[in-house]
């Protein structure tokens, strides 16, 4: 029996971790006598941002993490962040294979799949949004919680940014240290930020880029049966988790509105400007990093496969 050790980036109460643990159970059930995955824990076992390097170096075999956590080492991950395709489309058109290949060459890991896809981000605010002449929200003077993933985009929107951990946002919103934050369409209720955030701006931007990566040397030491089983199950869960999250999105939207959150939409033209600004920031960051690290040939390929240009 192949034994595989695994850790996950997020605490257990988040839906993304639940997906991962359910997927591991699925692998273990179907792989009885072939492969057994032992989950060693979450961020308490290995720090959230140390997990990618730990799987690369072989401290653990498998990690469930957003790609952005190691985006500086594998710039191509931004193609998922600013994608206009679903994980299933990326797998069908060869995007996933290219993603796996750059992970192997740059980071000594296999990229097995893009889980919980189809979830996007919104900016939420405690105050009513203001708009510029072009109809795009104007965040001048708004104190916005920052995060490396969308830092470039927020700068482009003129916001005053404050970096803090997700765990500190609740008190920061309560005290008015920040008045706005970005988060996915789902999960605001789990974090209880809806107590303070009363407005949500549409459209959505970016995608969650949560994936499963596997140490390359450990992968090669697995039996072919184990490899096939793990890879197949992860690919199945791309679809399964995508569908489940679509339901969550509808459910959370209903609940948020029931609790009094207002969903504000920009005009179609303004939305176009806004989303393009976001995507340009991500692709620009990827280009900048690739120029330094080499591998520019992937830029156009990924743009075609993930952005459908």
């Amino acid at each position: 029996v192949d034994r595989v050790s695994a850790v996950h980036a997020f605490p257990e109460f988040l839906v993304y971790t639940k997906t991962f643990l359910a997927m591991v159970d699925d692998i273990n059930a179907r792989g009885e006598g072939i492969v057994e995955i032992q989950v060693r824990g979450g961020p308490e076992a290995i720090g959230m941002f140390q997990q990618p390097q730990a799987v690369r170096d072989g401290v653990v075999d498998m990690v469930h993490t957003p790609g952005s956590f190691y985006g500086a080492s594998v710039p191509e991950i931004d193609a998922m962040v600013a994608a206009r395709v679903t994980p299933m489309e990326a797998r069908a058109n060869g995007g996933a294979a290219l993603m796996d290949q750059v992970h192997q060459s740059r980071f000594n890991v296999k990229h097995l799949g893009w889980i919980d896809g189809g979830v996007q981000f919104h900016i939420y605010s405690t105050q009513e949004f203001k708009f510029g002449d072009d109809g795009v929200i104007d965040l001048t003077g708004v104190k916005l919680r920052d995060n490396p993933i969308y830092h470039a985009f927020f700068e482009a929107l003129n916001a005053t940014t404050a970096s803090m951990k997700a765990t500190e946002v609740y008190s920061a919103l309560e005290k008015g240290v920040v008045d706005a934050a970005a988060w996915t369409s789902i999960g605001i209720l789990d974090l209880k930020w809806d107590k303070f955030l009363k407005y949500r701006i549409d459209p959505k931007f970016y995608n969650t880029d949560i994936g499963v990566i596997f140490n390359k040397d450990s992968w090669e030491s697995l039996s072919p049966e184990s490899q096939k089983l793990i890879q197949d199950v992860v690919a199945e869960w791309e679809q399964k988790s995508y569908d489940a999250r679509q339901q969550d999105i509808a459910k959370d939207a209903e609940e948020l509105q029931k609790r009094g959150m207002q969903f504000v939409s920009m005009t179609p033209e303004a939305s176009e400007i806004y989303v393009t600004k976001a995507n340009d920031a991500a692709w620009g960051r990827m280009k900048g990093r690739l120029e330094e690290m080499g591998g520019m040939e992937n830029y156009d390929k990924l743009r075609k496969l993930y952005y459908k240009e």
């Binding site: 290995i46 720090g47 140390q50 730990a54 170096d57 072989g58 401290v59 450990s218 030491s221």
Partner: peptide
């Protein structure tokens, strides 16, 4: 946290992880 390999490889991995943590 040493993973597989010789004791030196394991030390390097484990203690390297310690430094990163």
């Amino acid at each position: 946290m040493g993973g597989n390999g010789s004791i030196f490889v394991q030390m390097s991995r484990g203690i390297g992880q310690l430094a990163n943590n």
